[in-house]
Nucleic acid binder design. Structure first.
Lengths: 219, 219
DNA sequence: CTATTATTTTAGGCTTATCTAAAATAATAG
DNA sequence: CTATTATTTTAGATAAGCCTAAAATAATAG
């Protein structure tokens, strides 16, 4: 159907659109894919011809309906494979990204849907990212960054914003896992550090970077 | 590590060596890969430089130890994925080849070994083909073509030689599956057709092509 | 042993995805 | 509003894998 490269462009554009909520610009995409702007320009022309993006010279670009549909299906595949790798094969959540990057390009509708069923139609991957269903629809999430959670309110750790393996293995080290309860006890005005209360009354102190890197759901 | 293309060449050369027991020639490899001889010549030079094959102009070629090791690891991956697709995802044995052709190129030692463990270290794929272990060693098999089984001797269906999906779905249709008992009742001299006795005394008549396409183990 | 046939290699091209360097265009500061 | 800076595009190359057509080599038949 599409080449790996094209699929990677589509996925990257989708994620940039999601982040900025607007049209994407060449240089951002180039940075995201670690390639040069000239290369991006070339590819944009080709993708535009194939009606995967809308694109006018020197203006931003965005996915067409067709392009978006493909991007979402790649994300679906990626996240389902991550569930398999963690839940069934016992990989750590900090180890699966690169392998899922490869698996997401396997072409077979049937395979993805059987995998989905085999895994019990999960609605989130091991990092708490939502998995679109077979029609490309995402479940609505009430997750908010921990930094937006009012002090004292009880919540649950529901996902990460920072997917870097250094952050993920830090979470492993402090034994804080998806689904765990969490509450902000206090915020230190001096350096904006947070004192959090976790499972079994355990308290930890974390940086403001930390509280911007995880998502929680109240209640 | 290696490109998909290179891996496909290695696998194809391995299979041709296995079949003919000798050095492989350009035209056979070209046919196996459905590409032109000129393309093969190009690639042979490159692979020879990388010490994956031994090659002298206009003579045959064969895998080096290094090349063979890679080829076997690709076969291992392919067959393990086939087991997963059939046993866990419920695909038919006639449906998995193309998907496994893609999955076999996923690069991760760890992944293959975890998959192997998850599947319970199977020693054969859904077609009865042996799966090499982590060191690249194949279990010795006592399988023989059904055509070599003496009349009257009891045996078990242990593998297919013909992997075409038309043959496999024919076997599905006649409800003859791996592990089933089999015995040659008689051979018709006129057209070399065989009368076979299967599970529950059931008898079928098959062509000489059929008896050359399946493997059995006596006993 | 030579002529014919089969096989392999060379030579020159194409496409995809990338690059660098230079030119063109857009954005921004004064 | 113009000069500087930033961004994007064009132009020309490269490497991997493939092709076709022609040349070279090897195999085989008489």
């Amino acid at each position: 159907m599409h080449t790996f490269t094209e699929e990677n462009y589509l996925k990257a554009i989708y994620k940039l659109e999601e982040q900025t909520g607007d049209t994407v610009i060449n240089s951002d995409l180039a940075k995201a894919l670690s390639i040069h702007s000239a290369t991006v320009t070339d590819m944009l022309k080709k993708m535009s011809q194939k009606k995967l993006i809308t694109y006018e010279k020197s203006k931003g670009f965005k996915l067409t309906g067709k392009g978006k549909k493909i991007a979402i299906s790649i994300i679906r595949r990626h996240r389902l494979w991550e569930v398999f790798l963690v839940n069934n094969l016992g990989f750590g959540w900090d180890e699966v990204h690169d392998i899922a990057e490869q698996l997401e390009h396997i072409q077979s509708e049937d395979l993805v849907n059987r995998l989905d069923k085999y895994l019990g139609h999960p609605n989130a991957d091991p990092h708490g990212d939502p998995i679109p269903n077979v029609n490309g629809e995402f479940a609505k999430s009430k997750a908010i960054p921990l930094s937006n959670l009012p002090v004292g309110k009880q919540a649950k750790f529901s996902g990460v914003i920072d997917h870097s393996s250094s952050f993920l293995s830090y979470l492993n080290k402090i034994e804080f896992a998806l689904g765990d309860p969490i509450r902000v006890k206090s915020i230190e005005e001096y350096d904006n550090s947070y004192t959090l209360q976790l499972k079994n009354e355990r308290e930890i102190v974390v940086s403001s970077k930390f509280v911007n890197s995880i998502l929680v759901i109240e209640g």
